[in-house]
Amino acid sequence: MHPRHLLSRARRLADSATPGRRRLLGITGPPGAGKSTLAAHLVAELAGRAALVPMDGFHLAGAELSRLGRTDRKGAPDTFDPAGYAALLARLRTPEPDGAVYAPAFDRRIEEPVAGSIAVAPHLPLVVTEGNYLLLDAGPWARVRALLDEVWYVDLDTPERLRRLIDRHEHFGRPRADAERFVHTSDEANARVVAATRDRADLVLTFTPDEAPPPTGC
């Protein structure tokens, strides 16, 4: 689907919001497929009518991952706080008129979530959220899908997606060999989990290497 049509679809979703009932658009797909950049593009083009709230703000902190013995699996479903994410989405769906909702963000420079980083004003009719596990139907993740009005699944040719992921990890400080190891083990294990949720999406977007934007941060 052409980007212009995607923007029109997102705009229609924003237009359908009613007082006290905000619309939520989810963008999901495997790591490195371009979902973060697509989400940021839509929010920018909607020019003050939407906010971007990534799922990655609900990464568990590094100290907690270390305590749980999950540091090497960072990015897997059990290295997030899905119940907290679902609770935030529920708040965002029904905004109160007298104040912003504050959401966490993930800072790749320090590889940690940062609380209260994103202010979502009550007048905004649309929130765009993106992340790997929006369509997962296991455990607390199962609450997420029902809170989203639409979910779009973004996919990309696998060799190109892996190349871009490795470049992203290297950009943020991993040695090349370590980046390759992490992508081919942890990231690809997570990608298989995400791929199994594809059929639950409202819209599937398959980018060619020439069409897809680079992963955020590259």
Rank of each mutant, 00 (worst) to 15 (best):
G48L: 06
L147A: 10
T208C: 12
F58G: 08
G84M: 00
G57R: 01
A195V: 06
D149K: 05
P97V: 02
A40Q: 12
I166F: 15
L6Y: 13
A196L: 14
F172L: 08
A90W: 06
D137A: 11
G34L: 07
R174D: 07
P97D: 06
L92R: 03
G32E: 08
T206K: 02
R12W: 14
P159M: 01
L52N: 07
A10M: 06
T71F: 14
R176W: 10
G69D: 09
E45K: 12
I27K: 09
R67A: 14
R12Y: 04
L156M: 10
R174A: 08
P82R: 08
M1I: 14
F106M: 06
G62C: 12
D56I: 10
P159C: 02
D107P: 14
P19Q: 06
V154N: 09
F58M: 03
L165C: 10
G75D: 10
Y133A: 07
A86C: 01
D187V: 06
R200F: 03
E112H: 12
D187H: 05
T18K: 11
A40K: 07
A177W: 15
G57T: 01
Y85V: 00
A146I: 11
V101G: 06
L135G: 14
V204Y: 03
R161N: 11
R12M: 05
L65P: 00
R21Q: 13
